[in-house]
């Protein structure tokens, strides 16, 4: 499942996508993200029958990721976002 967390407002679309079919629930993104955007849940809130842990974007972060993710955004010479690099399964992507 492609879980898109974020929002759309007058300034644009801001979504972090987590591919739950790839996510192993390892938690590397949780420890890597300097803004603590992610958390690991023991069950997927959108898939009641999944019984393995999965990464989600915290509900407290969902409506402000434009700002939380801002400092890591790869602009100019900056390297790719740490969360994207940290995910060995390649499950995390950003749309903006």
């Amino acid at each position: 499942m492609l879980a898109n967390y974020g929002y759309q407002d007058g300034s644009g679309d801001y979504f972090i996508t987590i591919d739950t079919d790839k996510c192993t629930g390892c938690g590397d993104c949780v420890t890597t993200c300097p803004a603590q955007v992610f958390e690991i849940l023991t069950e997927d809130p959108h898939d009641p029958f999944r019984e393995e842990p999965v990464a989600v974007v915290k509900s407290s972060e969902k409506k402000k990721i434009k700002y939380s993710c801002g400092p890591c955004k790869p602009v100019g010479e900056r390297p790719p976002s740490p969360c994207v690099v940290s995910c060995r399964a390649g499950a995390i992507s950003h749309n903006w």
Partner: peptide
């Protein structure tokens, strides 16, 4: 009826 992709906007 299993979700394969979703997106929600609850900010606006």
């Amino acid at each position: 009826g299993k979700v394969t992709n979703f997106l929600m906007n609850d900010k606006c």
